[in-house]
Write a protein that binds this DNA or RNA. Structure first.
Lengths: 211, 211
DNA sequence: ACCGTAAACGGACTTTACCCCGCTAATATT
DNA sequence: AATATTAGCGGGGTAAAGTCCGTTTACGGT
């Protein structure tokens, strides 16, 4: 039993063959991406490579962006597990602010590891382009803020703003070459530290020094 | 003399006919959007409606998203003027924190007023999907943070995170129906207040903090 | 005014996302 | 086990994005 605690996909009432095809398509998509990059993953190409029909691809994922959203949710499951039942400070057991800081670090790593997928996932969306309507990040941050109780008029709004502060840089502000191998680690580290500074200030935690 | 202080487009070395066509295309695009909504603005349609060739449309704007980026930059010029030379607290003259709070309010209004354009603008971008590589928001926030000197290890990172906290909700987290006429004003107000709370906390100097 | 050049124009062409609907096969019912 | 039901499958069709290249036109030099 390793089904995620929060149902991320509509995998629930799916027929057996449909589920099998979904998994196979995701694998094929990952392979195509690894080989040629995200921009070269086309619907026809994916259908052909997987040996399935184009209609099937669209039924499963709705749109091109939907494939990348599914891919992202799939990767996100690992992070989700670590957050919900892994060891502290990311998982339960640590103080809320520690968990918040740890979550930021984990999320930055996640986004940098998967930035190509993440950016491809926000193409074209009519409605909310981000993963789910209330992403994992926002829910978790909200929960921790409810424990920390920072002095703001609306904790839900703060959760949304912090989610954006965490995801926004990688998703819409950074250049592609900020993800280039050379700069990658330094940029990551800067944003991890920055997140720590930011939530430290918001949660009135000033004892940790910085250089 | 109403040329923007910061050159937002490559309007500089453009031939006269090119500049004329650019302006005409933007007007036509605005008209099409007002009539049928952003999703119905097609490159063929825009070319036909403007009486120009499709090649021209692509040469001018590079891609579909490019049209919306140009439209957004055009609108943003007004905000830019108010920030650079308008009356305080948005313009120069007020205390930095006041200006920062006022900027947030103005930016939220701008994004809510132009959210359809703004979302259409972030389609498909290979590189940084947002307007310019270093958007107005980030530059201005960075400048104000340099005056306020909040106790963080990297002010550039904080500027990026606050820019994301300001733009992210409207661009990637809110549902479309949060922009529906009924909820619109309340949601705006919540985010304006939230921004004020957020930067208030970030910029509050503590006794132990450094200058 | 004329001319040469470089930029801009236009629209046919290619590629690709997305739709449709007749066909197939997995599950529910008896 | 046979049948009815319903979801899933497949691939051809449409429309819209993006490319190319021959033609036209602005503009600086003479």
């Amino acid at each position: 039993m390793d089904r995620p605690v929060v149902q991320v996909s509509k995998a629930g009432g799916e027929r057996a063959d449909a589920a099998r095809n979904r998994a196979h398509l995701l694998d094929t998509a990952r392979a195509l991406m690894a080989e040629h990059g995200a921009t070269k993953v086309t619907m026809d190409g994916l259908a052909a490579s997987s040996g399935l029909g184009k209609g099937t691809v669209f039924r499963r994922f709705g749109s091109r962006a939907g494939i990348f959203r599914a891919l992202l949710e799939d990767e996100e499951t690992k992070l989700q597990q670590a957050v919900l039942s892994g060891p502290p400070p990311l998982g339960p057991g640590a103080a809320p602010l520690e968990r918040l800081i740890a979550y930021g670090a984990a999320r930055v790593d996640f986004l940098f590891d998967n930035y190509e997928i993440a950016r491809a996932a926000l193409d074209g969306g009519q409605s909310a382009p981000m993963g789910a309507q209330t992403p994992l990040s926002r829910i978790h941050i909200r929960m921790l803020l409810d424990l920390i109780k920072p002095p703001v008029s609306d904790r839900g709004v703060l959760a949304t703003q912090l989610t954006a502060a965490l995801d926004g840089p990688a998703l819409l502000l950074l250049h592609v070459d900020d993800f280039a191998d050379a700069k990658n680690d330094q940029v990551r580290a800067k944003f991890v530290q920055g997140w720590s500074d930011l939530v430290g200030l918001v949660c009135r935690h000033t004892s940790t020094g910085h250089g």
